[in-house]
Design a binder for these strands. Structure first.
Lengths: 125, 125
DNA sequence: CTCAATTCACTACACATGTAGTGTTCTGCT
DNA sequence: AGCAGAACACTACATGTGTAGTGAATTGAG
């Protein structure tokens, strides 16, 4: 099961559902309206495409209305998008990527500690 | 001048040109053939689109054949792609992104030293 | 029971992308 | 001069994406 390809607009829906699911189409529409201004049919189209792609599973609530919930984990999708981004933009080299994003970011001392710890664990044996 | 949007196939051409430019369409075709197997017309179409987008500038070589060279720097494009990726997949939060890519990567001790130095410089004042 | 609101299935349509093919022009070689 | 091969302009066409509209089915409220 290769992780499905999720487009930009679709990510917005997925995020909302990873956040909490299941939800109905109209719930999602209402929830996202402030930021997206999407018509309900737009949301339904995107949901349909995500179901086709296997990214969402459908169910029903008590009232018999269709509900949607993620069928793939956020982790899986992040990994797949991340890998592809790493390849495309950094030719697969993680270090330049890390350098790029480490630069120009403001981090708290705890963040820095945490990241350093992770780096130590990535030491090539 | 917002950095142009560069698609996956287009990145491959841009990389070849950032690597060394200017080059003609057939030079690029020959150079990339082993990995891409693109017909020369495919390369020409992509080059044309990149010129339209303002990502490439055209010139001529001694024989009067058209040549192409980047009109935007790799840094600029990497930054723009990076920002959009950061937004889309990590909702703009750099730390989780760094954690994600720091995990699951093997780094040399020097890489780790270098990255730690960068992290120290990203300390929020 | 009836009508309006909700849900859904289908359809639409423009623009981006991947991947060429066709036809025309130019130019160096014989 | 005439032709083969390179270079270029234009066209093509399927699939993905953003963003809906239309019309049918269903259902709750009066």
């Amino acid at each position: 099961m290769p992780a499905p390809d999720i487009s930009e607009s679709e990510w917005i829906l997925m995020e909302a559902l990873w956040d909490s699911a299941p939800k109905t189409a109209s719930e999602l529409t209402r929830q996202l309206a402030p930021s997206t201004h999407w018509a309900e049919n737009t949301v339904r189209t995107l949901l349909g495409r995500l179901v086709e792609k296997g990214a969402l599973a459908v169910g029903e609530n008590q009232s018999g209305t269709r509900t949607y919930q993620p069928a793939v984990s956020r982790e899986t999708c992040v990994k797949s998008e991340g890998d592809s981004f790493l390849q495309r933009v950094f030719r697969g080299a993680a270090k330049p990527l890390l350098m790029h994003f480490a630069q120009g970011t403001k981090l708290s001392p705890e963040d820095v500690r945490e990241l350093k710890k992770l780096l130590d664990q990535s030491l090539k044996s």
